[in-house]
Design a protein around this nucleic acid. Structure first.
Length: 939
RNA sequence: GCCCAGGUGGCGGAAUUGGUAGACGCGCUGGAUUCAAAAUCCAGUUCCUCUGGAGUGCGGGUUCGAUUCCCGCCCUGGGUACCA
């Protein structure tokens, strides 16, 4: 049988689509399996071979699960809100809806060519109103909830209001930035305005003035995870700190649960670590240092500086304090004498961008304020400084400086010649601070002689007894800014009444993104939605109306910001379960049936963004009883990146002459990227090169001896500008989808990054052709040979094991071994080939469908066939060829029955001629026999 | 700096529990077939000073036996960072 993939493959893809072969049932007697891929952003560039890598793996796995009798959910969709479509709109005026539609069509076309078993009836697009209706709905739920630290879950805001009305806020244990207390009477006396302002401090989605990362070049704020090395992840523009009124998400409330939850998921250690580090839990104590009032002479407890420390055991080592320049107390405490110096320092610090501050770590700066605090245990006066190594946004924005135990404090003390007390027994701190937590504490009153760990506990006890602080856990995780000054995102279902945000009732959703003439910010600096003419909420008609009608009585302005990219992607896995539901975001029934995602495959670059936010929303939806699981992704695999292999030609400087790779060192050359499509196995197609660009039409070449021009190569990220992008389409065209699927798996372990190289693709293609040759002659129905049965069952075992541990590359190898063996055996037995086809069908589904029919089976039944059962008895051997080693070096082999015990094996081996040769007349000190494994003779 | 992952032939990689290092594929070499080419088939392919020896980044250790376990170091990739 000829391997005519270009005929076979489209035929079966059409068959699957027409017969809805991969439609998932919403209820079934079978066990369920939910396999999810990270849905793509449909960019204009289309897919390159790196994109489908994870999809191929999950597709192979889900096809395997179907064969094992699972009801499989394997959906796909598009994360279709985002910046590139908007920027294209700004440049060309093309509406992002159109760009997005076009890109999705291209993606779909490319995806279809690979033969995935997606259930396309469940497709979601985050930018479609039917979808973002529910994103808006979830936002409203978050707005309507607060976090109760006592019950340790999100609760409705109405319950909080009821509590305020009966008891005020004194008994409330909430995750909140609100520090004041009020009684029930006081609460009732507040105006609506005041009440809402307080409630904002409790809501999980809240409006607040907060320091945000403002990116002037992009004209929007960015979340922490959207900034890399102090510049925007997209575009690399500078980012500055700006105080802005923005929607935020109180993800901090879930910090502890986000750490704890990692214990219950099967993710790699590395991605769990990324999340733990990002959340940044640190255990320590908060301590108040009273201010020393030189003039009044005594400290007043109301005036104190609160610090957070992870080393309360080192409290006797405190010799000064440092506040962040932005700390609110700075102005109050600074003495007249130091006023100008402090002001100057503050100004200088505020002018530094985030990036400057980061790159300037070695440059130690600070300024004494003239004020002193009183050490709560020793009563000593300690100087209060400001310094920009202390961050306003972490802890309390103030530190107790312990130079002997913290390198930054040590550096600061050295630089400004401040005291460095040594409170560690037998540790030298003359050259650097001692930062390990294993020292014995000295010079520390009641902590003397204690190990750091014990001292830590004791210090916290003392701090609590003295009522100057308490044990405390801090998290680095900040609340997530949820507003973006963009057009192409979900509009907020929010209008403003007297400056207060009001949620639109959920029955009026979705609030559809308005048309604008211009996608840029407005002249007065409003976000792009400020350009919309129809963008006001009529509370009598419950409809969006013209902004001209705004009267602030019944018609109010709508929110001009849109939601960030991660809004839609934080819950899409739930929508797939019930994608067509118009009444709910997902029905309880479907959410209960499908439950957690059993297998999630995607890149690890989402470790601090998407994977954290979607866990947060899942926990929230769980708290509110909408779903019954609080971790979205049970098992996750992070596929590695496929890197490009760029080809280079070498042009002699200032000429149009090109030198082949091996001779380039003899000349002064410039390497130039050359399109990989005109290079085959590093050999340049010279004619094609001349045609590639007009300036090369007259190029001259200095070639290898055999007249070929050999290119150099380098492994780099795939990108258009490096001419090293390989699209899957070309390869499907040339070799077929089954070859592409198997080759992408054969490249190496899924999780590893690896360079793309088409050199080896022939090997995989030849394997499929070799397989076809097995089907060329007449196929026989009778008993298979013992040999073939062995081959088959060895393969069943290996393929099954490989799939279970996601080792797809060894899976491909094992198929090759199997086909090589069956070819040697000239196997034409139907029973063997049938099982073989089922095994291979998840890797190479098109060809296997074809062979399945050739074997006399009904078309389309292969996907739901039964995965072959491994029969161990077939592989049982009577003999084993023992490798015999002397001092660990294998010298010869002896074939012996496996039934033999150790003594018999030893006797047999030692009686052999070869053994005598290697013994060389000596007596062995010891002979180790591991039955069925090895014999080792120690001389 | 700290945390995580990794380092094996010319190349991609295999070795699942401490037990024959280099499976499988590419590439390369030689041969068969062919007028020729493609395709296919057969044989070989870790290195060396080759009846032997060395060898899984480097140095040590544990063990009868180490790619695998332990200690120290080097390199590559990823994450993160004045986080108190």
């Amino acid at each position: 049988m000829e391997y005519n993939f270009s005929e076979i493959e489209p035929k079966w893809r059409k068959f699957w689509a027409e017969n809805k072969t991969f439609k998932a049932d919403n209820s079934s007697e079978k066990p369920k399996f939910y396999a999810l891929d990270m849905f793509p952003y449909p960019s204009g560039a289309g897919l390159h071979v790196g994109h489908p890598l994870g999809y191929i793996a999950s597709d192979i796995y889900t096809r395997f699960k179907r064969l094992q009798g699972f009801n499989v959910l394997h959906p796909m969709g598009y994360d279709s809100f985002g910046l590139p479509a908007e920027q294209y709109a700004i440049q060309t005026g093309q509406h992002p809806v159109i760009t997005t539609e076009d890109n999705i069509a291209r993606y779909r076309d490319q995806l279809d060519k690979v033969g995935f078993s997606f259930d396309w009836d469940r497709e979601v697009r985050t930018s479609s109103p039917e979808y973002y209706k529910w994103t808006q709905w979830i936002f409203i739920q978050l707005f309507d909830c607060w976090y109760n630290n006592t019950s340790n879950k999100a609760e409705r805001i109405s319950g909080l209001v009821a509590e305020f009305e009966s008891n005020g806020n004194t008994k409330v244990n909430a995750c909140s930035d609100y520090n004041n207390t009020f009684s029930a009477t006081e609460w009732k006396a507040f105006t609506e305005q005041e009440k809402e302002a307080i409630l904002q401090e409790y809501r999980l989605a809240y409006l607040a003035d907060s320091w945000v990362n403002w990116c002037p070049a992009l004209g929007t704020v960015l979340a922490n995870d959207e900034i890399v090395n102090g510049v925007s992840e997209r575009g690399g523009h500078p980012v500055e700190q700006k105080l802005m009124r923005q929607w935020s998400m109180r993800i901090k409330a879930y910090a502890e649960r986000l750490i704890q939850g990692l214990e219950n998921v099967e993710w790699t250690d590395s991605i769990k670590d990324i999340q733990r580090n990002w959340i940044g839990k640190s255990i320590g104590a908060s301590v108040r240092f009273p201010l020393w009032r030189g003039i009044e002479g005594e400290a007043t407890p109301e005036h104190s500086i609160e610090v957070f420390t992870t080393r309360p055991d080192t409290i006797f080592g405190v010799s000064f304090m440092v506040l962040a320049p932005e700390h609110p107390l700075v102005e109050e405490i600074t003495t007249v004498e130091y006023k100008d110096a402090v002001e100057n320092y503050k100004k200088a610090a505020s002018l530094k961008t985030e990036r400057d501050r980061q790159s300037d770590v070695k440059n130690i700066t600070g300024q004494f304020t003239g004020a002193y605090a009183i050490h709560p245990f020793t009563g000593d006066k300690v100087q209060i400084w400001i310094g920009d190594y202390v961050l306003a946004s972490y802890g309390t924005g103030a530190v107790m400086a312990v130079p002997c135990g913290d390198q930054r404090d040590w550096d600061f003390a050295k630089h400004f010649n401040l005291e460095i007390k040594n409170i560690f027994a037998d540790k030298d701190i003359t050259e650097a601070a001692y930062t390990e937590k294993d020292a014995v504490i000295a010079n520390s009153d009641f902590l003397n002689g204690l190990a750091a760990k014990v001292a830590m506990q004791k210090a916290i006890e003392a701090i609590e007894t003295k009522e100057i602080g308490k044990g405390k856990t801090n998290y680095r995780l900040r609340d997530a800014v949820f507003s973006r000054q963009r057009y192409w995102g979900e509009p907020f279902p929010v209008y403003y009444k007297n400056g207060l945000p009001v949620m639109i009732e959920t029955q009026h959703l979705p609030i559809i993104l308005p048309e604008v003439e211009n996608y840029l910010p407005t002249a007065d600096g409003q976000p792009p939605l400020g350009n919309a003419k129809t963008w006001a909420w009529d509370t009598t008609k419950n409809d969006v109306v013209s902004t001209e009608l705004i009267d602030n009585k019944t018609i109010f302005p709508l929110e001009l910001n849109t939601m960030p990219g991660w809004a839609g992607s934080s819950w899409y896995f739930l929508r797939y379960m019930d994608a067509q539901n118009e009444a709910e975001f997902v029905s309880k029934k479907q959410a209960d049936y499908w439950g957690q995602v059993d297998l999630y495959i995607g890149g690890s670059e989402h470790g601090t963004g998407h994977l954290l936010y979607s866990r947060f929303w899942t926990k929230f939806l769980f708290d509110q009883g909408f779903i019954n699981f609080d971790e979205p992704f049970k098992k996750m695999i992070n596929q590695g990146m496929i890197l490009g292999r760029s080809s280079f030609v070498y042009r002699i400087k200032d000429t149009n002459k090109f030198i082949t790779n091996s001779l380039k060192s003899n000349y002064d050359t410039i390497p130039l990227h050359v399109d990989i499509s005109i290079v085959d196995n590093d050999k340049l197609d010279i004619e094609a090169f001349k045609k590639w660009r007009s300036d090369y039409a007259n190029a001259e070449f200095i070639c290898e001896e055999d007249g070929t021009y050999i290119c150099g190569h380098e492994v780099e990220k795939m990108s258009k500008s490096k001419f090293n992008v390989q699209t899957p389409d070309e390869l499907v065209e040339k070799f077929g989808a089954d070859t592409l699927r198997m080759y992408e798996m054969f490249l190496g372990p899924l999780e590893q990054s690896k360079p793309w190289d088409t050199k080896g693709i022939n090997g995989v293609h030849n394997f499929l052709r070799k397989l076809c040759r097995l089907f060329e002659g007449e196929l026989i129905a009778g008993e298979p040979t013992k040999e073939s049965l062995k081959t088959l069952h060895r393969t069943i075992k290996k393929i099954g094991d490989d799939l279970e541990r996601f080792s797809f590359n060894t899976g491909v190898s094992n198929f090759m071994i199997c086909v090589n063996e069956l070819t040697d055996q000239k196997c034409n037995n139907k029973a063997i080939l049938k099982e073989m086809v089922i095994l291979l069908s998840s890797y190479a589904p098109h060809l296997c469908e074809e062979l399945w029919v050739k074997l006399g089976n009904e078309a389309g039944t292969l996907s739901y066939a039964k995965f072959p059962t491994f029969d161990e008895s077939i592989l049982v051997e009577a003999n084993f060829s023992y490798p015999v080693s002397f001092n660990g070096k294998v010298r010869f082999k002896v074939e012996l029955p496996l039934a033999m015990n150790a003594q018999e094996v030893e006797k047999e081996v030692m009686s052999k001629e070869e053994a005598k040769k290697y013994l060389d007349g000596k007596d062995p000190k010891k002979v180790i026999v591991v039955p069925g494994r090895i014999v080792n003779v120690v001389l």
